[in-house]
Simulated scan of single mutants.
Amino acid sequence: MDQHAHRHDARAARSHGTVDVEHGATANARSHDPQRAPRPAGRAGMADRVKHIPATVSLPIITALAFGCFTIFRTHTDGTKGGPAMLYGLAAFVVSGALGLVVAHFQSSMITETRALAYGTLFGCSIGWVYSLGGESILKSSAFGFTLGAVMFVVALYVFRTHRVREPHGKHRPHKPHRTHREHSLPVATH
């Protein structure tokens, strides 16, 4: 009961803007840590924050931005001008960025072939769709997207296989040895 009361008091103290460390609450580590310097403001602060963005977030966003610009360029070559071309580019940026973030987030839990297939599928579908915006037929766009998706699959598979040391699970995933029924039973009596 006493421990619950201490936690409740600590939460109440935090909700009212004061922190009572004696009752189990923890102070804000950033504001009271003497070794940690405050973050600089302005450009220096932004540069400091950019250094902490992981590659699994920054690379899909940068790639999606480039893909959105390519979509705008492709729709301009078809004759679409102004606002509709920008909307196509914005849609391409949002959708490819979201899917890229999902693939990058879950890539460490995928086996190598599945990860390469995910990147190849995302790339092939994206390029096939943009190719169709230029007025090409659906069959030709699908074949073009499938071909470039297959190329991306092979390239991604090659990169993932040759850089296995950098993978989260190393060269091989750790497997637990499977026990047979005999190993779980009592030991065999010796004579």
Rank of each mutant, 00 (worst) to 15 (best):
G82R: 04
T75Y: 15
R49W: 11
H52V: 02
A85Q: 08
V94K: 09
H76Y: 15
T75M: 14
T77Y: 06
F70L: 04
I72N: 09
V95F: 09
A64H: 03
A92H: 04
A104F: 08
A44M: 14
A98S: 15
S109R: 09
E113N: 09
F67V: 00
T114I: 01
Q107D: 13
P54F: 04
S58W: 12
T71M: 15
T75Q: 09
V95C: 12
S96Y: 10
T112N: 00
T56P: 13
R49I: 08
L99E: 00
C69Y: 15
R115Y: 15
P60W: 07
M86S: 14
M110W: 10
G89C: 12
T114L: 06
L87V: 04
R74C: 13
L99D: 08
F93C: 07
A55S: 13
F93H: 11
S96A: 02
V50W: 14
S96F: 13
P84S: 03
F93Q: 05
R49Y: 10
G89R: 00
M110P: 00
S96I: 02
L65F: 04
A55I: 01
A91Q: 07
A47T: 01
P54E: 08
G100A: 06
I62A: 15
L90V: 11
I62Y: 14
P60R: 05
L65E: 11
R115W: 05
K81E: 15
G45F: 12
I111G: 10
G83C: 05
S96V: 04
A98Q: 03
F93N: 04
T112L: 08
T112W: 00
P84G: 14
F73I: 14
Y88S: 02
R115S: 14
L59E: 08
F106G: 05
H76K: 07
S58M: 14
G100R: 00
L87T: 09
L87A: 03
L99K: 03
T77W: 03
A47H: 13
R115E: 11
P84K: 05
R74W: 13
V94C: 09
R49L: 13
L90S: 05
K51L: 11
G68N: 01
F93R: 07
I61N: 10
V50H: 12
F73M: 06
I61C: 07
Q107T: 00
T112H: 01
P54M: 10
P84C: 04
P84D: 05
K81A: 14
H105A: 06
M46P: 00
I62S: 10
A66Y: 02
E113G: 01
G68W: 12
P84E: 03
A85L: 01
A64V: 11
G97K: 09
